[in-house]
Amino acid sequence: MIMMAFQRIHSLLLLLVLTLLGLGLVQPSYGQDYMFQRFLRQHVDPRVVGGNDGYCNLMMQRRRMTQNHCKPVNTFIHEDIWNIRSICSTTTIQCKNGRMNCHEGVMKVTDCRETGSSRAPNCRYRATSSIRHVVIACEAMVPVHFDK
């Protein structure tokens, strides 16, 4: 049942991306498209309001962030892609890497932090759900990287 829900979410996200491409609202390059797909896989879960430790453990594994090593920290954004994408139209700010393609907004999120006592692929996480400022890097009005 959970796997079916995940497949449905994945299908809906793919349909959304294809619709955006078809409407000409998003015209990513190959590299940008890869980065956008990766951003969606790692950071977007609009159907959940907030998660607990079990949510983080399950989602980190499902989204393939525990295969070779335990990703230390990951944030899931609980907003639809239109709300997330709207951040790309806000004032540009400096990213952690020094580039000037980051944008800031307020989103519902779950931060997943690895406990430090687990090993891949059985990584264990602690969850913190909140509404907070997030910083996202965008390329041509498309979110491609979660900065902080």
Rank of each mutant, 00 (worst) to 15 (best):
I84R: 10
M60Y: 05
R47I: 15
T115Y: 01
M107L: 15
R126K: 14
F146R: 07
V109W: 01
M100K: 09
E114D: 15
H103M: 07
G116Q: 08
S86V: 06
T110E: 00
E79P: 03
T115A: 04
I131E: 11
R126D: 02
K108P: 00
P121E: 06
R85S: 15
M59N: 08
S117A: 09
S117N: 12
Q61R: 14
D80S: 10
M141A: 12
R132L: 03
P72T: 03
C102G: 13
S130A: 15
G54K: 11
V134Q: 08
N52R: 12
R64I: 04
Q94H: 01
V109S: 04
F76V: 05
M65C: 09
R64H: 11
C56A: 06
H78T: 10
Q94S: 13
G116K: 03
R63S: 08
Y55R: 00
P121N: 08
N68K: 15
D80Y: 13
P143W: 08
C56P: 05
I87M: 09
I131L: 07
G51P: 05
H78F: 05
E114F: 09
G54E: 13
R119G: 02
G51R: 00
I77L: 15
S130R: 08
N97F: 00
I87Q: 02
M107S: 12
K71Q: 12
E114S: 06
C70I: 07
Y125I: 02
